[in-house]
Design a protein around this nucleic acid. Structure first.
Lengths: 128, 128
DNA sequence: AGCCTCCTTTACGTTAACGTAAACGTAATG
DNA sequence: CATTACGTTTACGTTAACGTAAAGGAGGCT
């Protein structure tokens, strides 16, 4: 069942506003078909939106995210082009790797703060 | 050796501008001491800056990052306060967990694109 | 018919996070 | 002693990513 979506259905599902969705279209990151004047979104459109929001959560700009989405097609081109493309992917992965390290450090820090909290809590409860 | 840093030393080290550092101070995220009119940064200031930039790379706002940095002191307070604090930490960790999942999905996607590239490359090289 | 709901376009407003320029102080260096 | 390097404050400018309001169309319910 290849159902479709209205703009407010998508907005509700992803907890964003319709303005945001229209904004993404205005900038060229989405292009739903029209039925009369109304926008009709396919599952593919919905996937694009999900990818955009995922990139956003990771601190990527819309342009950066759009670049990555473009990469998702099947790679084509001659040897030179393919090699350049692989290099670009490598850069992106390096960037994401750094994010992952940042994330781990931050989560470790939070963990140790929480540990301290539990110790403090145990002391408070023990001295009553 | 508890050395200190000038503003441009820090700017160079972290590949940002002095304007950025002054902006962080203006917003209250840094407060270096002064020697005459010049700003002098301690290793602790430098650490704060590093934390700010780390948060930024992960897509956190300056306010969010500053909130997290504030958490880093030793936890104090009565039972209620400690429990609320632990709850706040839990929320942050949940948010970071989601980022981590997002990151893994994205990196997997990139990996499979790269795989396709290598296959395409092998075909190009094989058919010459 | 009147109202509600969902949609549309157009357009000005807002916020965070800096950029950029002007105008000036101070200290070392050729 | 003039230039160069580094620092300062003040203030207006910019960009991304939407928010918000106005004004209206199309279909359905009562």
């Amino acid at each position: 069942m290849n159902r479709t979506y209205s703009i407010s259905e998508l907005a509700d599902e992803f907890a964003i506003t319709t303005r945001t969705i229209r904004f993404y279209e205005e900038k060229g990151y989405l292009s739903p078909r029209r039925e009369g004047t109304r926008r009709i979104y396919t599952p593919a459109d919905r996937t694009s939106l999900r990818l955009i929001l995922r990139g956003k959560r990771l601190g990527l700009s819309l342009d950066e995210t759009a670049d990555m989405i473009k990469m998702y097609g099947s790679p084509r081109g001659n040897q030179i082009q393919l090699e350049k493309f692989i290099a670009r992917i490598g850069e992106k992965r390096a960037e994401l790797e750094r994010k992952r390290r940042d994330l781990e450090v931050l989560m470790n820090d939070l963990q140790s703060v929480e540990d301290k909290c539990h110790i403090a809590l145990a002391q408070v409860l023990g001295s009553e």
